[in-house]
Design a protein around this nucleic acid. Structure first.
Length: 722
DNA sequence: AAATCAACGCTTTTT
DNA sequence: GCGTTGATTT
């Protein structure tokens, strides 16, 4: 047993800056933590320090993160340091904590006790349905955009009633849809993700005694990734902290990459204004990357304006230079990466130490093809997760209906799946009736069967069959344990049969996933507030909130492939930043406004700082994009890395390339430095890249893609190589 | 109700 | 160019 007041275990592993932050006197604190500077360590050690040095009760500490993964890691490390399970400690995601509060205070929040959660796909379906029900033109009222309107307003704390239409008919209609959406959610007893946060905020704002209780309880509020907080998360934090609490915010403005989904970097500065007594700490010593990598990242990010200011440094060695490879096309790029991976493995490295990072998911395909033919095991991150798969959502819809007949989304999803003769027309009748009666689809269906509304006898019997099925399942399942419930509903629903008929490959995988769902139910243990709910309801809520990476993935030694966004928070000995071309990265749609461009730059910064030992930047001079070949310029970000840090790798000769290239190659003596993809300068048009070539000697003409003027054909003599 | 076809659109993602 | 989706066909 360790002496509870021996703090050496907590403090010894820290550097001075970290120790200062961890042991800072109680009060509002903001920690600017650079990439790889030990941010999680400071957060976890602070928690333990509060408990062991300040005698804070674990009960009085709230720690909030954005992802379940981060929350899990934090809890694990705290428990490891404490040497005991950190029961009583509230560590969770914003949404998880909000969910917990709403389960505890569903009455005050005006929610039904068994409310369920809508994921974004469900939300979009519902919105689409509402738009259709209004007979609005779906081209004018795009569900995605309406969804964005609703969510961003919720993120900002706005209810439909508080929104002004400013005599703008479009806005007026959007607000109306928002209001209708709210009504529909209330009737079905469901809340979406943004609603969790807003509702949790409102329940405190509108219940003084409840708020007072939580203010008294949670004196210590620690928030991770503070630069990613949105308006409602910030407001919620501020409300809880009040004037007595001790907020401990950790973030990095240079790693703010989620502005597009409502994150407000400004919250870092706002924090300083709202808590004028707050102390600011900086963690700038990096333990992850070599000096060269850090210098490159610093050089890049220094091009951004309005930074809070931070310079990462390391006491480690400078290491290898950043390597830049100009590929002919995207396949050559992938080949190059493959070669480097083989070299790494041949020298004793592991594949899991390598990350391929790209701006957009579509870029993974070419790499996958190359790795597949090169027999290099890889894993692509991103894409659908387990609980988001169609068949799983179908199964969950059955379970939700069994649990709550008024869940209209689920009703619509499975009423005719597998097909049982309930067509669009019959459903219209039911919908119409529900609309008139202001009831759920289930109740409307019951009414229609019993002769109200115009439903054909055939449809009525089919519908009645479905409803009896659900009632029967609900009855049969009532005494079973969770996984038996799931299993039984799956069997009874006919979903398994339905998917077995599916085209071999796909259908098989789907049935396997459904089996996996039963296993997931078997392995499910409700935690904390979840145990207040019946197991099935707890399981359903859990499934939405933690749609989870496929839990059990055989840990084969794989090259890791993911987008730059996904890579945040991770580190790898060897990193490839691929597709470094203007238009791809920075992305075309971010080129126009300076804020967008700066966010792209931060994204690049995040990518570079993932690398521990080796960093490669690659780009393709020619890339097939959306089916057409295009010629790009190398990313402006490459030029923002100090020259002396970069070592350019010349393309290998044996690469198959267009005939024109070899023709141009033969002209190199006549026009030194002129090659396809080479950079040239024109007196009037500025800089560009050579796209194409014809003729030879003094009659040679080239097509040049100029940075600003577009592409033009011209004589070589007017160009100078760069 | 399945199958086939044309249209579309195409960053980034967590909860 | 590809995968998804909605509409139309049989």
């Amino acid at each position: 047993m360790t002496d509870p007041h021996d703090l050496s275990a907590i403090l010894n592993p820290l550097n001075e800056a970290q120790r200062e932050a961890v042991t800072a006197p109680l009060g509002p604190m903001l920690v600017l933590a650079g990439a790889g500077s030990g941010k999680t360590r400071v957060l976890t050690h602070r928690i333990v320090w509060l408990i062991q040095a300040q005698d804070a009760s674990p009960h009085g500490i709230l720690a909030v993160t954005f992802t379940n993964k981060a929350a899990g890691e934090m809890r694990g490390r705290v428990e490891q340091l404490l040497g005991i399970p950190g029961g009583g400690l509230w560590i969770g995601t914003f949404h998880g904590i909000a969910h917990r509060l709403l389960r505890l205070h569903w009455r005050e929040a005006g929610l039904p006790q068994g409310f369920q959660i809508l994921d974004s796909e469900d939300q979009q379906r519902l919105i689409k349905k509402l738009i259709k029900a209004q007979n609005l033109d779906e081209n004018r009222w795009v569900p995605r955009e309406v969804q964005w309107f609703i969510n961003s307003n919720k993120d900002e704390g706005h209810r439909p009633a508080s929104l002004k239409d400013n005599n703008d008919p479009t806005r007026h209609q959007l607000i109306k849809l928002y209001a209708e959406y709210e009504t529909a959610c209330a009737r079905a007893g469901v809340v979406d993700f943004a609603e969790l946060l807003l509702r949790a905020f409102e329940v405190w704002r509108d219940n003084a005694s409840l708020l007072a209780h939580y203010r008294r309880r949670f004196r210590h509020v620690l928030i991770d990734e503070f630069q990613d907080t949105n308006a409602i998360q910030y407001a919620w934090m501020k409300l809880l902290v009040g004037s007595e609490g001790y907020p401990f915010a950790v973030g990095d403005d240079d790693q703010s990459i989620y502005r597009w989904r409502g994150a407000r970097v400004e919250n870092l500065q706002q924090f300083r204004r709202d808590f004028p007594t707050s102390k600011l700490y900086r963690l700038e010593q990096n333990y992850r990357s070599t000096g060269a990598i850090l210098a490159a990242a610093n050089g890049l990010i220094s091009n951004n304006t309005g930074r809070l200011g931070k310079n990462l440094w390391t006491s480690g060695e400078r290491g290898d230079p950043i390597r830049l490879y100009a590929a002919f096309n995207e396949r050559d790029e992938a080949e190059f990466v493959s070669h480097r991976i083989r070299d790494w493995v041949a020298h004793g490295g592991q594949r899991r130490e390598i990350a391929i990072l790209y701006r957009s998911n579509a870029q993974s395909r070419v790499f996958e093809e190359a790795f597949m033919s090169g027999r290099i095991p890889y894993k692509v991150y991103g894409g659908l997760r387990f609980f988001e798969r169609a068949e799983i959502k179908d199964a969950l819809a059955y379970l939700r209906l069994v649990s709550n007949r008024n869940d209209d989304q689920s009703f619509e999803r499975v009423v005719n799946l597998p097909t049982r003769g309930i067509g669009a027309k019959s459903l219209d009748t039911v919908r119409e009736y529900a609309k008139g009666a202001g009831s759920s689809l289930w109740d409307a269906a019951a009414a229609c069967i019993s002769g109200q509304g115009s439903l054909g006898p055939k449809a009525a019997s089919a519908l009645s069959g479905f409803m009896q099925l659900i009632e029967r399942l609900a009855h049969e399942v009532s005494q079973l344990v969770l996984h038996e419930k799931v299993d039984h509903v799956l069997q009874g629903s006919g979903l398994i049969e339905h998917y077995k008929k599916d085209k071999q490959d796909r259908g098989e995988a789907r049935v396997e996933n459904l089996d996996e769902l039963v296993s997931a139910a078997r392995g499910f243990t409700p935690e904390g507030v979840e145990s207040e709910l019946p197991p099935l309801e707890a399981f359903l809520a859990h499934a939405v909130l933690e749609s989870g990476e496929g839990q059990a993935d055989a840990w084969e030694d794989c090259v890791q492939m993911m987008t730059l966004h996904t890579a945040k928070g991770l580190e790898f000995p060897m990193v490839f930043l691929c597709g470094m071309e203007d238009g791809l990265f920075p992305h075309q749609r971010s080129l126009n406004d300076i804020d967008g461009l700066e966010e792209e730059r931060r994204l690049c910064y995040v990518g570079m700082t993932r690398a521990m030992k080796q960093l490669f930047l690659t780009y393709a001079e020619q890339r097939r994009l959306h089916g057409v070949d295009s010629y790009g310029m190398q990313s402006r970000f490459i030029k923002e890395v100090p020259d002396d840090l970069i070592e350019e790798i010349r393309p290998r000769i044996q690469v198959t390339r267009p005939v024109a290239v070899s023709r141009l190659r033969s002209e190199e003596s006549a026009a030194p430095g002129m090659r396809l993809g080479g950079r040239v300068r024109h007196r009037k048009f500025g800089e560009g890249v050579i796209l194409n070539f014809e003729g030879n000697g003094s009659t040679a003409r080239v097509e040049v893609n100029f940075e600003h003027q577009g592409s033009k054909w011209m004589m070589v003599e007017y160009l100078e190589p760069m």
